[in-house]
Simulated scan of single mutants.
Amino acid sequence: MTTRYAALLRGINVGGAKKVPMAALRTLLEDLGHDAVGTYLQSGQAVFGSDRGDEESLAAAVRDAIEERFGFAVDVIVRDHAYLRAVAETCPFPAADLEARQLHVTYFSAPVTAERFAEIDQAAFRPEEFRLGDRALYLYAPDGLGRSKLAGALARPRLNKGVVATTRNWNTVVKLVELTGA
């Protein structure tokens, strides 16, 4: 049975570095044997169907193929439709009442605990706030990610040590659920 997945690539096509054309990414995924391949935007989202492997092995295969084909390393997280849908459905913030630029999800390659972020005094960042989910962090930033002081604090390397983390705005979160549900 074919499962639909999204591959989330971290840090590509930003500021002219690590260029991965979406057409080339689609070809790469097809060459790996995946079907119904598509991409969304230029910032590193691809969707595909596969009947073999699991999220971790699929992510490793995509990561290795990108490095071989393009000559640089890219962190990759692969998540299936059921997980992506659950992340959207369990959002602790009122997503329907917010602008997409105000709500973001950081996907992690492995589970993270509240203890990892214990040094962050959330009250000092109000009205911004974050909440943890299943291998995800939800960030409410009323003035957008670019102006968020809390986002900067959450991105500190020591807080993300040992995990890959990549952030998407709410529009992308919802679109990936839609694209993997087909």
Rank of each mutant, 00 (worst) to 15 (best):
V37D: 08
V76H: 13
A141N: 03
V87P: 07
D75A: 12
L32M: 12
D80T: 01
S50A: 15
N171T: 15
L176I: 10
F70C: 13
Y83M: 07
G16F: 12
E115R: 14
L154N: 02
Y138G: 09
G49H: 05
V76C: 09
F125V: 06
W170D: 00
P142S: 08
P94V: 09
G162Y: 11
R79K: 15
G162I: 14
K18V: 06
R158N: 05
L137F: 06
G181H: 03
F70D: 08
V87K: 05
F125K: 08
A118K: 13
F117L: 04
I12W: 13
G33T: 09
G53S: 07
Y140A: 03
A110W: 00
A82C: 10
T180D: 01
W170A: 02
V14P: 06
L176F: 04
V164F: 05
T3K: 11
K19W: 00
Y140P: 01
Q42Y: 10
V74E: 02
T106A: 10
M22V: 03
G16P: 12
L176Y: 04
A6F: 03
G133K: 03
E30V: 12
L145W: 13
V177E: 09
E56C: 07
A7I: 07
L32W: 09
V74M: 05
R158P: 00
F72W: 08
A17R: 15
R116L: 02
T90C: 05
R52I: 13
R131E: 15
R116C: 05
A61D: 11
A165F: 00
R85K: 15
R101T: 11
E55Y: 01
T167W: 02
R116F: 03
R101M: 12
A73S: 13
K175A: 12
A86L: 12
K161I: 09
L98M: 01
Q122E: 14
Y140C: 08
P94K: 06
T166K: 06
N160L: 15
T172H: 07
G53E: 03
S50K: 10
T39L: 02
G146T: 12
A60R: 14
A110N: 07
T167Q: 09
T106R: 14
R26Q: 14
W170Y: 05
R26I: 10
D31A: 10
Y83R: 05
T180G: 00
D54G: 15
F117Q: 04
R168G: 11
